[in-house]
Design a protein around this nucleic acid. Sequence first.
DNA 1: CCACTAGATAGGATAAATTCCTATAAAGGA
DNA 2: TCCTTTATAGGAATTTATCCTATCTAGTGG
Lengths: 150, 150
Amino acid sequence: MRKPATPSNHNPTALLRTHGLRVTPQRLAVAELVFSKPMHVTARIVHEQIRQNHPAISMNTVYLTLGQFEACGLLKRFEVHGNIVFDSNTSPHDHACCNRCGTIIDLDSSPSASSKHTVQLPTQLKPWQIEGERRIWMGLCPDCSSESVL
Amino acid sequence: MRKPATPSNHNPTALLRTHGLRVTPQRLAVAELVFSKPMHVTARIVHEQIRQNHPAISMNTVYLTLGQFEACGLLKRFEVHGNIVFDSNTSPHDHACCNRCGTIIDLDSSPSASSKHTVQLPTQLKPWQIEGERRIWMGLCPDCSSESVL
DNA sequence: CCACTAGATAGGATAAATTCCTATAAAGGA
DNA sequence: TCCTTTATAGGAATTTATCCTATCTAGTGG
């Protein structure tokens, strides 16, 4: 059992190099955080987390780094409740967000992701040059839903 | 041919009264603007428009008014490119937004709005209390698409 | 192993959007 | 017309994100 030669998400250094990004301590820290598992983070959350080990890291660096990861296709950006959220799951999928606690979950078997990931383009958009599509469900998660009954 | 007795969008005063809102010049002006036809507006756009006839109207009033209209179900809110957009078409439909010029169009015959407006709820969301769903397509509109080729 | 250069970082300034606060003004009912 | 409740304007405060710039450093070539 050897490690595969292809760079994987488990090797942040290789991941950065593969995408032509210089390997800096700050970028490594962000990469280790966001690529450790599928997650949804805002710039603020990343900053708070990274600061525990890199007290001097600036919000500017966090914004730039997340933006670069997005440009490389390593992250996808969407908006919910006025916040920009970065998703380390870059495969096509929809989201649901709890209006009360803010929890965001991935919808893996969403209708729009079914049929071999081929989302049908609405007729009206034929003359458009579509780059992407975002769908988000909003409401109360099971926990908050039961609490609101009490 | 008499006017129907039911309050309609063509009678802003009645519309406000029906929804328990006091009729003020500011609210009337906003209502006349946003309910004159289906449109997508931000608070800033509404403020700029209304100020032509109500030079003293404040952003605060615009935000409050739009928020109240939304709470009454007269407007629907969604987000695109970091902006909050209010839509006077409150029936279920998707949107497309041009990444270059910012144009937003309604998708009337979208897949998610088809089949009698009954959008299929993903299995994962059965234990949720879903209040709504938003879908937006992003890319270049026909005009900007052709310009980018030149 | 060192020096050089393009690119990265920190920190502050700036900008834009939204909410909060409060005194004043006005709508609508008595 | 008076009175109570609610709306409004204006400014302060907050939040989020971008811009700017001097300093620093990763990676490269010597």
